[in-house]
Simulated scan of single mutants.
Amino acid sequence: MQEPSLQLDWTAYDAYGAGDAYAHLPAHGAGFGKAAAVCIGSRSCQRTDAKGVMCPSFRATQDSSHSTQHRAAMLRAALDGELGERPFEDPRLHEALDLCVACKGCKRECPNGVDMALLRTEALALGLGEAATRTAQQAWLLEEYLAREFKPGELPWQALPDPSPPVLVHGHCHQKAFGAMKALRKVLGGVPGLQVQFIDSSCCGMAGAFGYEAEHHAISMTMAEAELLPAVRAASADTWLLANGTSCRHQIHDGAQREARHLAQLLRAALPATPVGPAAPTP
């Protein structure tokens, strides 16, 4: 097979496996192939405990063919020419990648840091190009921006109306995989008297448009029922549910008939009733 036409920058993996007789580097794909070979088959993605994010599709199906390890193996097979001349159109590869919700849990929790979400993007993308790279470098979550740009006490948050309601937080996959939960904790910690509890959950199962697709609805609900929806149902009626992910809020609404708020809504409620700052000049 010919070398695949790559759309993303894989040069960070160029030196991977050098001198390692056990790396099993694919014959094609350059850095992309080496990124797939980061998986050494430890099968940490096939654990059955309820800790962390990785791997929501395996945890829902208990089928190893829907795990990070199997997806990496199929990508290596494609790049080794085992799936024919047009490997990225092979239904076996499509089936392996189909239930990946791109949560990036593997990038954070796999012992070797397999970035299956990015590998999947390259396999399916594609024409993302330079414009998408520039946009990604300038994109910040609200909590990341607030935690980065302001010091504690610089923002005018006040305590929520008495009695302050408890807040139950579900972090979406991007927040967890990219370490943004720390920023979220910092921002919430700046609201006086806020009682905050975080749900220890994996992917909500909606994953953007994934859960809206008829063929994925059942697996989406299985993911949601693993930790998220039971925790939401157990929350008291006066608890504020906080979920920044749009699809997460939809999943909570449809699966537990509860309304979740975005961080911006909670912070708006913590703003003072009158503007803070110098008085307007007298005409």
Rank of each mutant, 00 (worst) to 15 (best):
Q2C: 07
E3M: 05
L8W: 06
L8I: 04
D9K: 10
D14W: 00
A18L: 13
A21F: 07
A21H: 04
H24D: 13
H28L: 12
K34L: 05
A35Q: 08
C39N: 01
G41S: 03
R43G: 00
S44G: 13
S44H: 15
A50N: 11
Q62N: 12
T68C: 05
T68K: 02
Q69H: 14
R71M: 15
A72M: 01
A73H: 10
D80N: 15
G84D: 03
E85R: 10
E89D: 14
D90H: 15
L93M: 07
A96P: 00
K107D: 09
C110F: 00
N112H: 14
A117M: 09
L119G: 02
E122N: 02
A123R: 07
L126D: 13
L128T: 11
G129Q: 11
G129M: 06
A136F: 08
W140V: 10
K151S: 15
G153M: 03
E154Q: 15
L160C: 05
L160V: 04
P165N: 12
P166N: 04
V167A: 04
V169H: 05
H172Y: 11
C173S: 12
C173M: 07
Q175A: 11
F178P: 03
M181K: 08
M181Q: 11
G190E: 15
V191K: 04
G193S: 06
L194R: 06
Q195I: 10
Q197E: 15
F198V: 13
S202R: 09
C203Q: 03
C203A: 02
C204S: 09
G208V: 10
E213Y: 09
E215F: 00
I219K: 07
M223K: 02
L229P: 02
P230A: 09
A231D: 09
A231V: 03
S236A: 15
D238K: 14
W240G: 12
S247L: 09
R249L: 09
I252C: 05
I252T: 05
A270I: 01
P272M: 02
P275G: 04
